[in-house]
């Protein structure tokens, strides 16, 4: 379980994450939605010990994020941030192998290599394994990063806007993978998503944030209501039922 108790982060007096208490980890896929500046990414940064909270307590499986050695947390929690700019010329295989770093400390064992192979084949990266990251398309690169966190073999996987800059096909592909990781591999995935229809289609639970606070937290179907979405995004959203699935219409 990832538990947050009264977590607060302020930038220049303004609370970006304001006294948030929430638990993640009992559902397979949880999606975090909300308008820009709602504090979603900051929340990820706090859980991933990239940002230090001003108040409150964070714990992963009972281990306090502030005091537990970073290397130990890295074996249970993986965080992939958005807009990953990797300047280094690394091959896909190199990158995925670095995902084993928390376990191997750089010396790959047979077990480590198995994990690397599994992650590479799971994301269909076999043909690209010797390619450098700067020679890949956006979708392939995103898959390489996900393969890396998959090789890290943690129970909790946090993906910050994994669909950024991807086309329709790749967005669907990544979400299907996220679903599989939860269903087949028993991972607990938390993602930040901007497209609420993707969130509704693929997640078990949706958490909506606004102004640094959690304003709605329920099963996907219960979030997909015009009044809930209008309150979250401050704009009118129409929700229609198509083939038994709620679909939000927000194109004006």
């Amino acid at each position: 379980m990832i538990t947050l108790e009264g977590v607060t982060k302020r930038y220049g007096g303004q609370a970006v994450v304001d006294d948030v208490s929430i638990t993640f980890g009992s559902e397979g896929v949880t999606s975090l939605i909300g308008p820009n500046g709602a504090g979603k990414s900051t929340l990820f940064g706090l859980v991933g010990r990239l940002i230090t909270p001003d108040a409150g307590r964070l714990a992963v499986d009972g281990m306090d994020v502030a005091t537990t050695p970073s290397a130990q947390l890295a074996t249970v929690l993986a965080v992939l941030r958005q807009d990953n700019q990797v300047a280094a010329r690394l091959t896909v295989q190199d990158l995925v192998e670095f995902g084993r770093f928390p376990h191997s400390r750089g010396r790959l064992t047979v077990v480590d290599r198995e994990h690397v192979e599994r992650a590479i084949s799971y994301l269909d990266l076999g043909p690209f394994r010797q390619r450098f990251l700067d020679e890949l398309s956006g979708g392939q690169r995103q898959r390489a990063f996900i393969a890396m966190v998959l090789a890290q073999d943690t129970k909790y996987v946090l993906l910050d806007e994994p669909l950024n800059n991807l086309d329709l096909r790749h967005m669907t592909e990544i979400m299907r993978l996220v679903r599989q990781m939860a269903d087949d591999l028993g991972k607990r995935v938390v993602t930040v998503l901007h497209d609420i229809n993707f969130a509704a289609t693929w997640s078990d639970r949706i958490v909506a944030m606004r102004d640094g606070a959690v304003v709605a937290d329920a099963a996907a179907r219960d979030i997909m209501r015009p009044e809930v979405l209008a309150a979250v995004y401050d704009t009118s959203v129409d929700v229609r039922e198509i083939d038994g699935r709620p679909v939000a219409l927000y194109y004006g």
Binding site: L50, A71, L73, V79, R81, N84, V86, G99, F101
Partner: peptide, 10 residues
Amino acid sequence: LGEEFATNLG
């Protein structure tokens, strides 16, 4: 790979 990757990898 950057500070965020490094921290994530412990």
